[in-house]
Design a protein around this nucleic acid. Structure first.
Length: 115
RNA sequence: UUAACAGACUGGUGACCGCCGGUAGGGGUAACCCUACGGGAGGAAAGUCCGGGCUCCAUAGAACAUGAUGCCGGAUAAUACCCGGGGGCUUACAGCCACAGAAAGUGCCACAGAAAAUAUACCGCCUGAGAAGGUAAGGGUGAAAAGGUGAGGUAAGAGCUCACCGCCUGUGUGGUAACAGAUAGGGCAUGGCAAACCUCAUCAGGAGCAAAAUCAAGCAGCAGAAGGGUUGUUCGCCCAUUAUCUGCGGGUAGAUUGCUGGAAUAUAUUGGUAACAAUAUAUCUAGAUAGAUGGUCACUAAAACAGAACCCGGCUUAUAUGUCUGUUAUUUUU
RNA sequence: UGGCCGAUAGUGUAAUUGGUAGCACCGCAGAUUCUGGUUCUGUAGGUGAGGGUUCAAGUCCUUCUCGGCCAG
């Protein structure tokens, strides 16, 4: 299977995102929080959101890009059929590998991986 | 030679895996998928401090208000930016300057001081018996005190007179002009503040791509105003009385155009001191819509500030490494 | 994206047309009291940062920083 991550697999509309925030269950760790809700489809849809006062525009973009890259690499291990919204909070600075460690810990805690 | 500071320029490359557009081909009823080729953030994209283009608003016109600018000339689509020149200030090679008018008017100048601007002069000086008068040299206050220095003169003094310097007015010379220097007068009560009001000159109609236009989907009206037309007022112009506007409430927030070929970029030549302009040739160089540039590896180390959202020209601010220039300090040699 | 405000002591809030930056609470010290509180007296702490105009700037102009609000 190709490790790509297209437009279809993203949460794009504001109403859908706020729906996930209101009705999904949440799991959190230091620096991040994830909201999960089942969507009744054959694929997952994801959105990564840095919190409002997360540095400047470049830092916010980096968080989103790192998260997208991690999700792309580890996509096959996820369970199917969920809408996922991840919020990142400012604090200690993460490079790509530390971010990946945090990311994997978070989703292990949420029980989103296939066994 | 080394370091610090200031200014100018510069602002990684390649391979593989992904992301967003484009072109060509193939598959599929369609949504879409696959393959190949080629493209994909900046010098500040930032702040939004100025100026334009573009779009809409009577046909965008006039006057006042309001705001901005303010030595002269040039350049430009336009500007507060830029180029050249003049003047002033300073730490004087060099750098900086919102650099019109205070002799049209109004206002302000705390405290101190006699007095802060029409000199009714406090201590003084002189004349005089006194009353009173003439003075502004000296004193002290203040950020600022009424042209300055010297000589003559006088009762004491004073541009009262003279010399030099400064200021003002007139004349003519050089310069496109700002202005410069020359000359003849005036004796100078013309203090400072216009980044206080203001006067003069010049410029500006308003709102902004979430502008504006089209298609699709969807809903529920009610109350009020007589006018309304996106700027403060007035005039003018346009629309209209079943329309229109205002308020509350209800519905939808999907798609397309605008959206990138442009005051464009690169090179050369010509004109100009320069900013810049003209001509010729070549090139096509992001277009997303919760918003595309990331990861790994290699190149000794890849690092700073930082991310387009209609587009340009400036300004301001932030900037690692490298290069160049200048200043200061230091070391060595002569 | 466009537009509009604000920043004064640890906290809240004044300062007229530029002219000695006040007030209250809090803090500290002293007095009163057997001790603490109350009360009284005294005292410390300052204009967001840089530059300019002016004799003089919290105030006027300008460049940044931070915070907030509005429209769609």
């Amino acid at each position: 299977m190709r490790k790509n991550h297209t437009k279809k697999e993203r949460l794009r509309k504001k109403s859908e995102i706020s729906c996930v925030f209101n009705e999904g269950r949440s799991v959190s760790c230091s620096g991040a929080r994830v909201y999960i809700m089942s969507n009744g489809k054959e694929f997952n849809r994801v959105v990564f959101i840095p919190a409002k006062k997360f540095g400047n525009a470049v830092e916010r973009n980096f968080v989103k890009r790192h998260a997208k890259e991690i999700y792309r690499q580890e996509k096959e291990r996820f369970k199917r059929g969920y809408d996922i919204a991840v919020v990142f909070y400012p604090g200690t600075k993460y490079d790509f590998w530390k971010r990946k460690e945090q990311f994997m810990f978070l989703f292990k805690k949420a029980g989103m991986f296939n066994k």
